[in-house]
Design a protein around this nucleic acid. Structure first.
Lengths: 346, 346
DNA sequence: TGGGGTTACGCAATCGTTTTCGTGTTGACA
DNA sequence: TGTCAACACGAAAACGATTGCGTAACCCCA
């Protein structure tokens, strides 16, 4: 086993100083051609690679980006990561991942772990618990120490940093407009409680679409799901609610759900109750994922372009890190959504 | 903006030496109680945190694990990562992610990028292209430099390192046995070409199960899918093949697929052709994911316990890093599979 | 022969931390 | 009063790399 070779070892071996070796490897003309080629040959032979940690210490930059997300077993987030990773790699950066599992404490710990020199900047999506507690001290502290943050999807408006968001309201509006225009009159909404920002915005989009088409919203058609750590329970509860809703409101002919799981759940129940999809029941979901694509029938969705979000976030962060952009100026990039028509809409 | 405070700054401020500050913070009794509390109070006030990079350089360990996977937008891999992350975090390690996108070159680049001091060890699943080329020099070099590797799922047997694998053969056997025992007589197999190790093993399991139940395998019931970078095309081709197969072999009453997407695809076509599932067509898939769980009807699957795989991999790597285990001894851990019975089996 | 310029290298500081080894100042004891 | 231990602290090396500056050795020319 040959351990990694260092400048010092090369220097000793060739009987020159460390600085000579360093300069020779960087092809400094301060060093004679003779020595240069000798050193370079030796380095190549021993497969010399500069130690990243030492470089990081010296340069005060790690060329590494920290990404903190609520969960990774999630189509949207993993897509965002792949976007981040691709862009970061292209620009010579590594990506280090922290999972908050939607927990405030884990988010804080992860940030603190990484903020002590391990990374140059953060890309993150805020944990639900954090949004609920509205305790943002860890973000402020990080930014205060001069470490840039880019927030995506679940952002905190009051924090001064770059942001990349989906146009949730407009996306929902598109979805609901599609339902209305294809003939739906009574459209149910399955959304989350309002403290989840994106849920709130998507609800607003639903309401605006109705308004624009002169349809009076009915509170009785809206289900606001209480999220649960245990998804099983959450979905079971939702199933009962949807079932009850469909039993009570026979006129429902369209459903808009703020995520695909809610939509799939609704579809399952609707099919069980004998609805024909899309003939007498149309369904559209926000968030395009595998479930939608491969469901039977396949679900029409609003795609968030997650990969693009990730790539954009990385671009913004790296631009800031490399000072290609004004340090004090924060931007909010809006990624537009696309309606993907599949088999649950007419 | 207050930049991070260092030992040197504290030392200057309190008019003591750097070493005194360091010792005081580590509560060395070499330092008087007076000085100790003074330093500690000051450090707390200024929120001092030791610089990780400097520590890494000094300690020659980064407390970071490099994970290289073929893709992240994939239920299995993201679950493995969540397992790795959890275990790693518990033991004070960070996780840095590299994606190979199934490409040999990207795998090599990622490994080289991380192997220069950024991490203490690797956990990885080999890219398909690498398996095809059978070029493993980058793994050998890494191991040779004294950096431990743990391979999971897609492993290279000839390389001496720790491995965590799924019991692919036994898992498939379980699945096919289930089909047979529930009354299926003519079971089709949808698998991958043999160079993908796991595809091969799963095919073997299928064959063994048939053999044990005294059923003669028929080559005409087996589809070996040629994988394609473009999943759309791969699935479209597969759809045609399955359709042709079902048309030709009317006696088929069971399908075993080596992943859930193949199974879902088969199910879709079977349903279209009027098969009743599970009454006259049963289906089981290897790999348990969201698709299976939320498909209608929900798919019976073989679960690989991906989170456990990740956690186990992390445990093995960290144990080696912390020398809790013999450096020269390599183990192969087999994670057993579980049959999850849902609605596509009787 | 002495001064100036060039060449080719080494020294030492630096990044932030830990740790070993001195060392000056006490106080106690013979 | 001389000796020695204990105490409290500082200097310096080390991790691996980069870089500004100093300088020895040489040549050239006046």
């Amino acid at each position: 086993m040959k351990r990694k070779v260092t400048l010092k070892q090369i220097a000793k071996e060739l009987d020159v100083s460390v600085s000579t070796v360093s300069k020779a490897l960087r092809n400094s003309k301060e060093i004679s051609l003779d020595t240069r080629s000798k050193v370079q040959a030796f380095a190549k032979l021993y497969n010399y690679r500069p130690n990243n940690i030492a470089l990081s210490l010296k340069n005060k930059r790690t060329k590494t980006i920290g990404v903190i997300i609520p969960e990774i077993v999630h189509h949207f987030f993993s897509k965002v990561i792949s976007g981040i990773e691709k862009e970061a790699n292209n620009r010579g950066y590594n990506v280090i991942i922290g999972l908050s599992n939607e927990s405030f404490d884990k988010e804080v710990i992860n940030i603190e772990m990484l903020a002590n020199g391990s990374i140059d900047g953060f890309i993150l999506s805020v944990a639900k618990e954090t949004l609920l507690l509205q305790d943002y001290h860890h973000f402020y502290e990080t930014i205060n120490q001069g470490m840039p943050i880019v927030m995506f999807d679940r952002v905190v408006n009051e924090i001064a940093c770059d942001k990349v968001v989906v146009d949730d309201k407009l996306g929902s509006k598109k979805a609901v407009a599609k339902l209305i225009e294809s003939g739906c009159q009574n459209i149910a909404l399955i959304t989350t409680k309002d403290y989840v920002n994106v849920g709130k915005l998507r609800t607003q989009g639903y309401l605006e679409a109705l308004e624009e088409h002169k349809i009076d919203p009915k509170a009785s058609l809206i289900i606001k799901v209480e999220e649960n750590k245990d998804k099983e329970i959450e979905i079971e509860t939702l199933e009962k609610e949807i079932s009850a809703l469909l039993d009570k409101e026979k006129s429902i002919d369209g459903i808009f759900a703020v995520n695909e799981l809610y939509a799939i759940t609704a579809m399952k129940i609707a099919i069980n109750k004998g609805y024909k999809i899309p003939e007498n029941m149309s369904i559209v979901a926000f968030t395009d994922g595998v479930l939608s694509k491969h469901a039977i029938p396949s679900l029409s969705t609003i795609s968030q372009h997650a990969v693009e979000m990730g790539a954009k976030s990385a671009t913004m962060l790296i631009d800031k890190l490399e000072e290609l952009v004004d340090e004090e100026k924060y931007q909010t990039e809006v990624i537009s959504t696309t309606l993907i028509e599949r088999d649950t809409t007419r």
